[in-house]
Every structure is written in C-alpha cells, then in structure tokens.
C-alpha cells in the first residue's frame, strides 16, 4: 500500500527508550565489551566489515532496549547477535570472492577426501549459518548444549544434530561432539 502525506505529523506516545546523551552505561559497555563481541561476530561472519555491521546492528537493537537490559546487557546483546546473524544473513551471500586468474587445468579439486586434515577456517565458511553458530557457541564460547539451545531458541536435540553435521563437514569425528563441557560458565575472553 502507498500512503501519502503532504504534511509532517507529530507522533504522540510515551517514550520508552533513552535519549541521546543519557546512556553513559551504554557507551561504557560498548567500550568495555564490544571488542569481545566483535570477535564472536567475526567468527560467525568470517568478514571484518560484516562482523562490524552485525555487531553495530545488534548494539543498536540493544540501545532501544537498554532501560530493561542494563543490568545484564551482554547476555542480551549476545543473543541478539546470534539471532540477527541467523535471520539477517539470509539475504546475503556467504563466502568468497575470486578476483584472480581462472582455475588452471589440473588444479586440485577444492573438495578434500574424507579423513584428510583440512583448513578448518576455510571449511567453516562452507557451513550453513546455524551450524556455524553452533560451532562458535560450543567451541569458542564454551556453552553447553542446553545453553546453546536456549540462546538459539531451539531444542537440545537440534543442537546435537547440527553440531554433529558440522563436525562431520569439518572432518572431525562426530562422536567427539558429546556434551563434555565440564564447566557451564561461558569463557570470558578479554576485549
């Protein structure tokens, strides 16, 4: 539908978000924790620019909710970040850009035979986004399967199956995917 107006209209309604300049805690949080969050974002996107974009998108959403999340903002931002990644990513292409010569005749096929050691970073780029998110949450954030499921809004069974598929594609024995994390407390890396 097309709506038209020839005049400005005032928008009544209660303000539920902070004013600009009223968010010192928010700015302090960004300064203190955004470095660590950017690393997580980068592990998801594998692209510096997209990582920054994803993080700023998540922080912007957090800003509007700051009044009710300021007691424990990091968990909220982290959840927004992963879920934004899962949805916002849909309209973007993952992966590489090739800008050099055409592949030469006889060049090795990029697909590695099962069982060979492969470049895990490159292999992660080929994981579907949900599998990549599970890998980052389980093996970088050190979340348990239950914590991962809660953050992604899915069942523990889905986390297990996604993790198993991801590890198989990374040429890691899926049998190692069992939830062996002894300490359920997420690792806090320095920003």
């Amino acid at each position: 539908m097309i709506n038209t107006t020839a005049r400005d209209s005032a928008v009544p309604g209660a303000r539920t978000e902070p004013r600009m300049g009223e968010t010192p805690d928010f700015d302090e949080f960004v300064a203190a924790r955004s470095g660590a969050l950017l690393r997580t974002s980068y592990l998801l996107t594998h692209d510096h620019g997209l990582a920054e974009d994803l993080l700023q998108t998540s922080l912007t959403k957090a800003w509007f909710a700051w009044g009710r999340i300021s007691d424990s903002p990091e968990a909220y931002v982290r959840k927004v970040l992963f879920n934004t990644y899962a949805t916002w990513w849909r309209r973007k292409w993952n992966g590489e850009t090739a800008t050099e010569d055409l592949p030469e005749a006889g060049e090795d096929d990029r697909t590695d035979a099962s069982g060979e050691v492969i470049d895990l970073w490159s292999a992660m780029e080929r994981l579907p986004r949900r599998q990549r998110a599970v890998v980052v949450l389980r093996y970088f954030e050190d979340l348990t399967e239950a914590q991962t499921a809660e953050l992604l809004g899915c069942s523990v069974g889905t986390v297990k199956s996604q993790c198993s598929k991801a590890l198989a594609k990374l040429r890691i024995d899926p049998a190692l995917a069992a939830d062996t994390t002894p300490d359920p407390t997420p690792r806090k890396d320095a920003s």
């Binding site: 997580t40 980068y42 069982g115 895990l120 970088f140």
Partner: peptide, 20 residues
C-alpha cells in the same frame, strides 16, 4: 582427521588475529 583441539585453536587464533 582434525580434532576438537584443532577446532578450538583455529577459532582462538582467528579471534585473536582480529584487531578488535
């Protein structure tokens, strides 16, 4: 065959490499 330790090391290395 890679190991989980390899995966963790890869993630840590790339996260650390970022000039965050």
């Amino acid at each position: 065959m890679n190991s989980l330790d390899d995966l963790r090391a890869t993630l840590d290395a790339h996260a650390t490499d970022l000039d965050a």
